[in-house]
Amino acid sequence: MTTLDTRGSAQLDAAVRRLDPASPTLTDAQQRRALDLRERILASGPDANVLGRPPQQPLPPAGGSRRRRRRLVVAGGLVGAATAGVLVAPLLGDEPREAAWSATPTAMSADDARELGESCLDTAQRAIERPGSPPAQGSFAPEQRRAMRVVLGERRGPYEAVVLGNAAGYDLDCLSVGSGVPVVSGGRYPMANPAVDGISLSGSAQSVEGADGAGAPGEMASTAFGRVGSQVTGVRLSTPAGPVTASVANGWFAAVWPGTDTIAKRDPFADVSVTLTLADGRTTGPTAYASFPQREVPGG
């Protein structure tokens, strides 16, 4: 048997085209009914009962609800966005979540991570180009974004996160829920260089409340991410959602968890603590989230 060649999009689409159940042409009877319908509609007033039954009413377009689909807050800066320099690019569009969040991450393929990373960069670019946007700075500056590579990707049910980083310590941190367009956050300043047995971190929290019922009213998702020292092999967090095992790769870590705090009522990282596992098997912590270095704020 030969193998179905679906390597390229064109080949795959050609194969899918063969599954099309629709008739390529109208039958004579369908054409007659179509002409009859056209005449009946044209002979009717706007509110006439053309079809001999109540006409269906379409749902309103999704565009209106899309605008309120994702409300974003910056809550992970701890001392506030002004000093911690957390910048968030809001985005549009999502789809329903498909499965439950898990405290332990599952692997994301390199292809998926790269694709989500590209989507993040695209998101960042569009946020910058939006009329009225402030000049791009920090992680969003063109020279920093150009140097970024995907350093980490993780998946927890419908939550997918990637971290893009560069050698200067700048990062873009992206969260996509249910394959939706990611929300991107970055720093005004680079992430602090961590001690060999420590980490530097930052975080963001956002609403995942969906107009289509994707999330409960006020439902949040929190992301913690940062750099790990050369001796750190594992990062575990104690969060309001319970214990969370972070992903660690390429000198970075990240973890996403759902939260139920009402938006902006309180810092969602206030009760978070972190336990580190080191290469020699020792563990340190739990240490309060706020005790770790964050970004290299000039004069800070």
Binding site: G63, R66, L91, G93, E95, D122, V181
Partner: peptide
């Protein structure tokens, strides 16, 4: 009713 970028991703 979604953005073109979101659709391309899907």
């Amino acid at each position: 009713g979604i953005s073109a970028v979101a659709f391309r991703l899907r």
